[in-house]
């Protein structure tokens, strides 16, 4: 098995669509899912790098596994459902604490999924006027996510000037339509890949095969 160069973890309450997002990104389609048991992971070849993406289970009973999945993660994608304020609050209450084990320069992304379900952002009146019955009211605005992102930075005591701005790491997506899904993952990857070199030095086990390939990639980018 190829050893991944870095790890990205998806966190969020059950039913917000973590599995669907990953599925959309990896398999390019949207499919009915079952609630994830434990966790699952995918390996994504991203340029010369192998990125492992962990899909965690949002259900309460698997909550205890979260810290382990997050250990040494280079990026955490905190996912909520735009039609549920509760799902955003859960992120703060329940999931943020799981990220104490992540790597030092971990990148946080906040993602509001299922935008396809809701009316157009900030244009509630017209949407109601149109009376589309399938659309439901959006409960979380992008501003809420931005505020949450800033809160993360604060609670993690990260240097606000050195982390990427909130606008670059708050996304609204739809796994169903595919809207913004690639932007999300590729945006996150492009931010974490530069961290790989730093991690090299910290590794305490020596993997010959891997250290070789690292040398190669270093050569490649000069």
């Amino acid at each position: 098995m190829k050893k991944p160069d870095l790890k990205v973890v998806l966190l969020g309450d059950m039913n917000v669509g973590k599995t669907s997002l990953l599925h959309r990104y990896m398999e390019r389609r949207f499919q009915e899912t079952v609630s994830t048991v434990g966790g699952a992971f995918y390996l994504k070849q991203w340029g010369p790098y192998n990125i492992s993406i962990w899909d965690t289970a949002g259900r309460e009973r698997f909550h205890g596994l979260g810290s382990m999945y997050c250990r040494a993660a280079s990026a955490v994608i905190l996912t909520y459902d735009v039609s549920s304020m509760q799902s955003l609050l859960e992120l703060e209450d329940r999931f943020l604490t799981l990220t104490d084990t992540v790597s030092d320069d971990c990148v946080y992304a906040v993602v509001g999924n299922k935008v396809d379900l809701t009316d157009v952002a900030g244009d509630e009146d017209s949407a109601t006027a149109l009376g589309t019955p399938t659309k439901i009211r959006r409960q979380v605005q992008l501003e809420d996510a931005l505020a949450f992102y800033k809160k993360i930075i604060k609670t993690k005591m990260l240097d606000e000037t050195s982390v990427p701005p909130a606008e670059k790491l708050c996304f609204e997506t739809s796994a169903k339509t595919g809207y913004n899904v690639d932007t999300l993952f590729e945006g996150v990857f492009s931010m974490v890949v530069p961290l790989i070199k730093k991690q090299d030095g910290q590794e305490d086990t020596v993997n010959l095969e891997q250290s070789n390939s690292h040398k190669e990639t270093k050569k490649g980018c000069c």
Binding site: K3, V37, G38, G39, A40, F41, W54, R61, F62, G64, L65, M68, Y69, R71, A72, T101, D204
Partner: peptide, 22 residues
């Protein structure tokens, strides 16, 4: 053996490198 009848994998460093089995 983990919660929910999962077989969990963990390394000495506390990292999971394989997805759990059910």
């Amino acid at each position: 053996a983990g919660p929910g009848g999962l077989g969990m994998f963990a390394t000495v460093a506390g990292i999971s490198q394989r997805a759990p089995v059910r």
